[in-house]
């Protein structure tokens, strides 16, 4: 059982509220408590050309976390990258919720359902995997999680390709082409952890479910009735 700082980021208060609720519920089930960084501000996402400006905006959140927590859970991959970039000295341990999962605690989860006979495409997208030094440590954690509960996985060579999510409101044809390229070479329920990827996949997937990994885990734990 651990106490972590928590940085939800802007999209998790709005369009990705589902991910926010999922992370909070999952942490509670794993016995962790989350303390939201007081008065947190936007990380700057991918919208700033001036690196110093971006680091300054993101870094303000770390100043607000000082003296409160050293380990901070950051679900949104863009926020995760920016907060890590703002902390080159690694004074804080910026973590994706995916880094809370490991074979040991997965085996301890009180399982109410399994995923046998179901096919999944674990899709990480870009910012959980790149740039190097900022990426999550276990690059197979979603596969490990799905397999641990009996689900079948596919799409290894597409799992870190780009869905074009950040072009959705700029050049949607580009997002459509990149997302459908990925969808066309994979099958089954798309499992994501990024709000951008969720929206891009959801927008362009036909006849396929798109869920957050938190949805999947809460389903397995019997916390929700359907995927």
């Amino acid at each position: 059982m651990m106490e972590y700082g928590y940085y939800p980021g802007c999209s998790l208060t709005g369009s990705a509220k589902r991910l926010d609720q999922g992370v909070r519920r999952l942490c509670k089930k794993l016995g962790h408590s989350l303390a939201e960084i007081p008065d947190w501000n936007c990380c700057g996402a991918l919208e700033y050309g001036d690196r110093n400006e971006l680091v300054s905006i993101s870094g303000e959140n770390l100043k607000k976390a000082q003296g409160i927590c050293r380990e901070i859970i950051v679900p949104c991959p863009a926020c995760y990258k920016n907060l890590k970039d703002a902390d080159p000295e690694r004074s804080f341990n910026i973590m994706s919720p995916l880094e809370l999962l490991n074979p040991e605690n997965l085996s301890q989860i009180e399982q109410k359902r399994d995923l046998k006979g179901q096919v999944f495409f674990p899709y990480y997208g870009c910012l959980l995997m790149r740039p190097e030094g900022n990426s999550i440590k276990n690059r197979n954690i979603m596969e490990d999680t799905i397999s641990a509960f009996g689900g079948d996985v596919n799409g290894e060579n597409m799992k870190d390709r780009c869905c074009g999510g950040n072009q959705l409101f700029l050049n949607k044809w580009a997002t459509e082409r990149l997302s459908t390229l990925i969808l066309g070479k994979t099958k089954g329920t798309v499992v994501v952890f990024c709000p951008f990827c969720h929206m891009a996949m959801k927008t362009f997937a036909t006849g396929r479910k798109v869920v957050y990994l938190t949805d999947l885990l809460l389903y397995v734990m019997g916390e929700s009735n359907s995927l």
Partner: peptide, 21 residues
Amino acid sequence: GYAGFHLPHKVKRLKPTNASK
């Protein structure tokens, strides 16, 4: 599924964006 209304939160302390320039 992405829709939902909430009021904006005004952050009290945000470093001026041109401070680093």
